[in-house]
Simulated assay, not measured.
Amino acid sequence: MPRTTTAALAAGILLLGGAATEVAQADGKKVEVTVTDSADTTTEGRLTHYRITVRNEGGKDLRAAVVTQSLAGGAQHVSSSPRGTATDAAVTWTMAIPAGSTREIESVVTPGRPGADRRTGDDAKPGARQQTATTVCVRGRHSGPALGCAGDTDTLTAAPQRGSGLLALLWVVLGTGALAGVVVFVRRRLPVAEVD
């Protein structure tokens, strides 16, 4: 079976949406990778729980398999079991996967804010939606070819901006206070007409 390139697989995952499974074989090592998550829609900042399953279906042990989960722009790694090594763009685990065995990884991520409008440069409005994806690839070693990749896509909704309600309330209070101050100042300056 020909190997699937990571770029082609990622494009296929983005087009199809949802969870994906990929089985690839290289040098007699056959690996099945599955990625699922807790929901098909999520909101910026809400925890997303991914379950990554890697099955070594080949006849050879993977003594130091490298499992890498790519994070979409702005997403942040929160925790994982087993513990992985996180960077801004990915989380990586190194593990032994004997022939015929399966390893599971739980990864918790918070998605970033949906992107800004490229035409206007404005930030995403509350309620704006876009697709977000995570891709997981397995290699036999750090510099080796991908033995298998899979991914998951979700619809990401922008959350209301924090503090926007408080900011509006602050402006109302300040505006009302300024108006009251002007009224008091004007009343003190105007002569009072006496009634006979």
Rank of each mutant, 00 (worst) to 15 (best):
E22T: 12
V23T: 11
A24L: 03
A26L: 13
D27E: 14
G28K: 05
K29N: 08
K29S: 05
K30F: 06
K30A: 11
E32C: 04
T34L: 01
D37H: 10
S38T: 15
S38L: 03
A39D: 15
D40P: 02
T41E: 14
T41Y: 10
T41F: 11
T42L: 07
T43E: 14
E44F: 06
G45T: 12
G45R: 13
T48F: 02
Y50L: 02
R51S: 09
T53C: 05
T53V: 11
V54T: 08
V54E: 05
V54H: 03
R55T: 15
R55C: 02
N56Q: 08
N56S: 06
N56P: 05
N56C: 03
E57C: 07
G58N: 05
G58C: 05
G59W: 05
G59F: 13
K60D: 04
D61C: 09
D61I: 08
R63W: 05
R63N: 08
A64F: 04
A65D: 02
A65L: 03
A65F: 04
A65W: 01
V66I: 12
T68P: 04
T68Q: 05
S70T: 12
A72Q: 11
G73D: 11
Q76G: 10
Q76F: 07
H77K: 03
V78K: 10
V78C: 01
S79A: 15
S79F: 01
S81T: 00
R83A: 12
G84N: 03
G84H: 00
A86K: 01
A86Y: 00
A89P: 02
A89S: 14
A90L: 09
V91C: 00
W93E: 02
W93V: 01
W93P: 07
A96D: 08
I97L: 07
A99Y: 10
A99G: 07
G100K: 06
S101A: 11
S101F: 12
R103E: 07
R103T: 06
I105D: 05
I105V: 14
S107F: 01
S107G: 00
V109W: 03
T110Q: 14
T110E: 12
P111R: 10
P111S: 03
R113L: 09
R113A: 14
P114I: 10
D117R: 08
R118M: 09
T120L: 05
G121M: 14
G121F: 14
D123S: 13
A124M: 15
A124C: 13
A124N: 10
K125L: 09
P126R: 14
P126L: 15
P126A: 12
A128H: 15
R129A: 15
R129I: 15
Q130Y: 08
Q131G: 10
Q131D: 15
Q131H: 14
V136Q: 04
R139D: 06
G140S: 10
R141Y: 12
R141W: 11
H142R: 13
S143P: 06
G144A: 15
P145T: 14
L147C: 03
G148W: 01
C149N: 00
G151P: 09
G151L: 06
G151K: 07
G151S: 10
